[in-house]
Design a protein around this nucleic acid. Structure first.
Lengths: 235, 235
DNA sequence: CCATAACTGCGATCGACGTTCGCAGTTTCT
DNA sequence: AGAAACTGCGAACGTCGATCGCAGTTATGG
């Protein structure tokens, strides 16, 4: 079992959606398309969360059976790839760069966060190593271009981008938390927290909970500070 | 349906594992315990990843049926709570604080990352808002104590802790990526990346991929830089 | 011009999952 | 002693991702 040696027909070596052609040259015209699947999936996720994006559900919306989707996509993972890349494409990369890395990256982060707020499920996609489609590549290119003059090894630059995105996700989640209704689960969690803290141990936690002043526009400032700490001045 | 008003028996309002007593006072002695479930679940996850932690699998290891687990735990989510809190308890919080927030937090981050490396599945647990058990609370208390003298509102301090943990997760994932064998999926992704980059667009990505020099001990330094940017000097 | 190969949609089905119900047996409280 | 609160757990439900195989369709090669 597993991988076969040369000889038999190679048993479906795993390939990215991006590397596999959407259609062959032979058969009848396809009724749907990857773009259509993607649109439906994104819509579904926007309305009802990522868990609503199941093969069956998408198929039902498309008016077909679950098995049909596998003609367009090798599985659910591919669908997630398509979705993530699609909304990544919503980030405007035509904004000219000033040449100063920190504000340029911070501005990019702001635009990225906007996408996360528009598509909250984006933070829920399990972060595979290297989920990077064409749009994602363009994004990476733009971010690296912003750091063109920075005297840092390439690996470090890419880590900075990854780190930046982690912060974006973090802040997006925090902002979404405030707006959304409590799921009941987090209400219970909050109740436990208050109850435990009221018991008297954890004085610092109690103090921190006490003087929570609403500080709104911290994102941009925080982003700038972090980036300033990471990116050495262009020489 | 949904939430009932006072009158009937309240239909199982959701409560945290931590708030629900492990055992009632009446019935026969329980064969297992939450601690036992947790141990098994953690072991399973350590060996075969988080997806191996299913009610059925855990039950099988325990030599019982899936339904039995629901006497100890209200569902899989509770099990994840228990697991996360258990390994959080592995972080040494008896290390004395120097009073200087940045190195103290950086050191805490290093210890936290070690736990992530020991339990890779920790990064895979879907980050619910406020998954905070008793050990997690102790952790938070320690981190806030490290920032005791810092003139910052409590909410901001907690955001700093969250941010710190996000970075830890990020770096842990990066380190684990290098060591682990390619899943075939990420091999395919890498292949697509190389192929696309070789086509000539994305020159900055190509450049970054080219001069990736192995830079090892960046974590501590990066952590310090970020924290220095975020934490104002104690006054 | 037709046989062949490559494709299409998709019903039927598989195995695994989380979770609920109901029942028989056990222990404690009043 | 009786009621109440618990225990383990077999059976079942609904949903999920994924595969197989078949009938129909289209392009290609001789």
């Amino acid at each position: 079992m597993g991988t076969e040696e040369a000889g038999g027909p190679v048993a479906q070596e795993p390939v990215t959606v991006w590397a596999r052609p959407e259609r062959g040259a032979r058969g009848p015209a396809a009724v749907h398309s990857r773009a259509e699947l993607t649109t439906v999936a994104v819509q579904l996720a926007d309305e009802s969360g990522l868990s609503a994006v199941s093969m069956r559900h998408v198929a039902r919306v498309l008016g077909t059976g679950p098995a049909s989707l596998y003609r367009y996509v090798s599985g659910r993972d591919d669908l997630l790839d398509l979705m993530a890349d699609a909304v990544t494409g919503e980030i405007d990369l035509d904004v000219p760069l000033s040449g100063d890395p920190v504000p340029d990256l911070a501005a990019l982060a702001v635009r990225t966060k906007a996408v996360h707020l528009r598509h909250p499920w984006l933070s829920d996609i399990p972060p595979e190593p290297l989920r990077l489609g064409p749009r994602g590549l363009n994004y990476l290119e733009y971010a690296l271009r912003a750091m063109a003059g920075v005297p840092l090894p390439g690996g470090t630059k890419m880590e900075i981008v990854a780190l930046m995105n982690a912060l974006v996700t973090q802040f997006a989640r925090a902002e979404l938390r405030g707006g959304g209704a409590d799921t009941g689960r987090q209400a219970a969690q909050a109740a436990y927290l208050n109850e435990t803290v009221a018991r008297g141990d954890h004085p610092h936690v109690a103090a921190a909970l006490a003087d929570r002043t609403e500080t709104e526009p911290v994102f941009d400032r925080t982003m700038r500070r972090v980036l300033t700490g990471l990116v050495p001045p262009t020489q």
